[in-house]
Simulated assay, not measured.
Amino acid sequence: MEFKELTDEQWKYIKPYLPPQPITGRKRANDRNVINGILFVLITGCRWSDMPECYGSP
């Protein structure tokens, strides 16, 4: 199965369900990259350690 990143239209529906960034402390990684990374692993069936670096560290 071929993986395609989330489109802007799809992201528009997902973003409101995510919690806001914390006011204090360390900020979270880019939410869109994290979700695309999770979807990449689920759709392609690759191992977390084989995930492309553009989605963050495994």
Results as ranks from 00 to 15, higher is better:
Ile43Tyr: 07
Pro58His: 07
Thr44Gly: 13
Gln21Glu: 12
Asn33Thr: 01
Arg32Val: 06
Glu53Thr: 05
Glu2Asn: 01
Asp8Asn: 10
Pro20Phe: 03
Ile38Glu: 14
Cys46Trp: 08
Thr24Gly: 10
Asn36Pro: 08
Tyr17Ile: 10
Pro52Thr: 04
Glu2Thr: 03
Ser57Lys: 07
Ala29Gln: 07
Ile43His: 07
Tyr13Thr: 13
Cys54Trp: 04
Leu6Asp: 06
Ile43Gln: 12
Gly45Cys: 14
Ser57Asp: 11
Asp50Phe: 11
Ile35Cys: 08
Leu39Ala: 01
Asn36Val: 04
Glu9Arg: 09
Met1Trp: 11
Arg32Pro: 13
Arg47Glu: 15
Ile35Trp: 07
Arg32Trp: 06
Pro16Gly: 08
Met1Cys: 12
Cys54Met: 14
Asp31His: 07
Pro52Glu: 03
Asn33Gly: 02
Arg28Glu: 07
Leu42Trp: 10
Arg32Phe: 09
Gln10Cys: 01
Val41Phe: 02
Gly45Ile: 14
Pro58Met: 02
Ile14Gln: 09
Pro22His: 02
Gln21Gly: 04
Lys4Asp: 05
Gly56Cys: 07
Ile38Cys: 14
Gly45Leu: 15
Arg47Leu: 15
Pro16Lys: 05
Pro16His: 08
Gly25Cys: 01
Val41Met: 06
Asp50Met: 13
Lys27Pro: 15
Glu5Ala: 00
Gln10Trp: 01
Lys15Asn: 14
Cys54Lys: 13
Glu9Ile: 12
Ser57Ala: 08
Phe3Ser: 00
Ile43Ala: 06
Gln21His: 03
Lys4Asn: 09
Gln21Asn: 06
Asn33Leu: 06
Val41Thr: 05
Arg32Lys: 15
Gly25Asn: 00
Gly37Tyr: 02
Thr24Ile: 12
Gly25Ala: 03
Glu2Gln: 01
Ser49Gly: 11
Tyr13Asn: 14
Pro58Ile: 01
Asn33Ala: 03
Phe3Val: 00
Pro22Val: 01
Ile38Gln: 11
Trp11Asp: 09
Glu9Phe: 07
Ile38Trp: 14
Arg26Thr: 08
Asn36Ser: 04
Asn36Cys: 08
Cys46His: 09
Leu39Asp: 01
Glu2Lys: 02
Met51Trp: 12
Gln10Ser: 06
Phe3Arg: 00
Ala29Val: 04
Leu18Pro: 09
Val41Lys: 03
Trp48Arg: 12
Tyr13Ile: 12
Lys4Phe: 09
Leu6Gln: 04
Ile23Phe: 13
Asn36Ile: 04
Ala29Phe: 04
Pro58Ala: 10
Ile14Asp: 11
Lys4Val: 14
Arg26Tyr: 08
Lys12Asp: 08
Glu9Tyr: 10
Cys46Arg: 08
Arg47Trp: 12
Ile35Met: 11
Phe40Asn: 05
Tyr13Arg: 13
Leu18Glu: 07
Met51Thr: 15
Gly25Phe: 00
Arg28Gly: 10
Pro20Gln: 02
Arg26Met: 08
Cys46Phe: 09
Ile43Ser: 08
Ile23Tyr: 14
Cys54Ser: 08
Tyr55Phe: 15
Asp8Arg: 04
Val41Arg: 06
Pro19Glu: 13
Val41Tyr: 05
Glu5Leu: 00
Leu18Thr: 04
Leu42Gln: 12
Val41Leu: 05
Pro19Gln: 13
Ser49Val: 15
Phe40Ala: 05
Ile14Arg: 06
Asn33Tyr: 01
Gln21Leu: 05
Gly37Cys: 03
Leu39Lys: 00
Thr7Ser: 10
Met1Thr: 13
Phe3Gly: 00
Leu18Gln: 06
Pro19Tyr: 13
Leu18Asp: 07
Tyr17Glu: 14
